[in-house]
């Protein structure tokens, strides 16, 4: 609880329009909540957007092993596609957010600068222009797969699964051994740095969750391509 409180107070120190409270609900673990109005005054590719957003950021007791939840008091624009069923904003893939939070000595400050502000900018841009300013990810497990594909710079789903598994479980992976991606290169010459970065920045529980989603997405893709092959085979058979 102390880490989580210190983080919220560090954020409040930088943005004095925010207030911090510790919330206790029954037997649940207490959490810290940051409420208030933040000003978006951001520019990306020459487009400056300025708006004030009233919001609350909920930081759990296990922070930074978990990602904070953010809710806008007035809600996101009606058709904005990245809001969860509970009304909180979907800010990004958890592994991606965890790595961004590692960009500062105070993870909640990094979360604010690297994750929350770009998301608020995207929401404001969407509110005005009905498009996402710098892209977004597919919903569900496909979006997680997209992120790890970009991160590892590999296309093959099973290679992404193996690399993520190596990051989440230490045992089958050796830096001087063959890279889990299947390239037949030594890991040190291939993906060792990526794996080390994930281990250093992302909590194991987040990696495990993301691995499950990536495995699911890979299965979906495999099933789809198997069905497509069967369909094409059948079509070819009918023609002959």
């Amino acid at each position: 609880m102390q880490d989580c409180l210190a983080a919220t107070h560090a954020l409040r120190k930088r943005h004095n329009s925010l207030t911090c409270t510790v919330v206790y609900i029954g037997d649940e673990a207490p959490y810290a909540r940051v409420d208030g109005t933040i000003r978006l005054d951001g520019e990306q590719q020459g487009v400056r957007l300025v708006a004030d957003y009233e919001l609350s950021i909920v930081v759990s007791e296990d922070f930074p092993a978990s990602v904070p939840k953010v809710r806008l008091s007035d809600g996101a624009p009606a058709t904005y596609p990245h809001v969860d069923a509970d009304g909180t904003l979907c800010l990004g893939v958890n592994g991606e957010i965890a790595m961004a939070m590692n960009n500062s000595a105070v993870p909640l400050i990094a979360f604010y600068d690297e994750v929350l502000l770009p998301n608020i900018y995207a929401i404001e841009y969407y509110r005005r222009y009905r498009v996402m300013p710098f892209g977004d990810r597919s919903h569900g497990s496909q979006g997680v797969l997209e992120f790890y594909r970009e991160f590892f710079d590999v296309d093959d789903e099973s290679a992404v699964c193996q690399l993520l598994r190596a990051a989440a479980f230490r045992s089958p992976y050796r830096r001087r051994g063959k890279c889990p991606c299947g390239s037949k290169l030594r890991a040190t010459r291939c993906h060792a740095n990526h794996i080390d970065q994930l281990r250093a920045c992302v909590d194991k529980s987040i990696l495990m969750d993301d691995l499950a989603l990536v495995a699911n997405a890979a299965n979906i893709t495999k099933t789809k391509s198997a069905k497509e092959s069967a369909r094409l085979r059948l079509k070819g058979h009918r023609k002959t």
Partner: peptide
């Protein structure tokens, strides 16, 4: 643009 929005 470090993090792109995503939904489960």
């Amino acid at each position: 643009r470090n993090v792109k929005p995503w939904r489960l």
